[in-house]
């Protein structure tokens, strides 16, 4: 028990050091811009399909499930407005971040972990490259900017799923649906929702990189790092979501 607490405290300290090192290296001269663009392609573009399918299904399912309740209150006409607020404010950012934590987090954790145990990180260092800057800074930056873009994309796809969902049992024109969606959404819905996804992306990137970069105990450790990257970053997404909703509430944007 005491040993577990001690190890947890040590790990928090190590993450804090890693976090500080990230900012120190980020502002140090000599940015690996090409590698960052490559990571944006692999981490962002390659996740588009998964995010699109998830967003579409979520939009469709939420619409279908919300309809009976609204019919009970005779408020079926509010369906586009209600689902748009639910999707854009909460459901799509969190679901997309969790998808990214699973796909990107495990990928980074396993990739950096295997690089660590097969001495590729050491090889990079002796090749005149700062491995932290080349591997960590580029990946964390790429994830931080790609998750918000993926969320915006998933928002659009999920709203399209919502349009199809409304039309499954009812009938609404394309123009009327989008007019109702846009009328229900304000900047107070969109800005906090997009802003928090930068933090989701950063948390996924930094935690996954930390887990991968500090892998120990051979190939067994690689599996553990990939697993821990997903679990801890998914948990952090919920913690940050809770913090974000408190801040939004304080700023009276709800």
């Amino acid at each position: 028990m005491w040993e577990n607490i001690k190890n947890s405290v040590i790990e928090i300290g190590e993450i804090a050091r890693f976090f500080i090192r990230f900012f120190r290296e980020f502002f140090r001269k000599g940015y690996e811009f090409r590698e960052m663009l490559r990571q944006c392609f692999f981490l962002g573009y390659k996740s588009l399909g998964l995010v699109a399918i998830t967003g579409f299904i979520i939009g469709l399912v939420i619409t279908i499930q919300s309809r009976p309740t609204l019919i009970k209150f005779g408020a079926e006409a509010w369906l586009p407005g209600m689902i748009s607020v639910s999707l854009v404010r909460e459901i799509v950012p969190v679901i997309t971040a969790l998808i990214c934590a699973g796909k990107i987090g495990s990928g980074i954790g396993a990739e950096l972990g295997s690089m660590k145990v097969t001495e590729q990180i050491d090889a990079m260092e002796v090749s005149g490259t700062n491995p932290f800057k080349y591997l960590v800074v580029t990946r964390v930056t790429a994830v931080t900017f790609m998750v918000p873009l993926l969320v915006v994309f998933a928002d659009a796809i999920s709203l399209y799923g919502g349009y199809l969902g409304v039309n499954l049992r009812g009938a609404i024109s394309w123009d009327l649906y989008w007019t109702q969606v846009m009328e229900s959404l304000s900047f107070g819905d969109i800005i906090p929702s997009i802003s928090k996804t930068f933090f989701f992306g950063f948390a996924i990137g930094i935690i996954s990189c930390y887990k991968g970069y500090t892998t120990q105990h051979g190939t067994e450790g690689v599996g553990r790092s990939a697993n821990a990257a997903v679990v801890v970053s998914s948990l952090m997404v919920f913690v940050l979501d809770l913090v974000a909703v408190q801040i939004t509430d304080l700023l009276q944007l709800i």
Binding site: E111, S114, M115, T118, Q120, D122, A123, M124, V126
Partner: peptide, 13 residues
């Protein structure tokens, strides 16, 4: 100074 690693350390990607 060259260094030949035991695990070769070729970049997999």
């Amino acid at each position: 100074v060259g260094f030949l690693f035991q695990s070769n350390a070729l970049y997999d990607s």
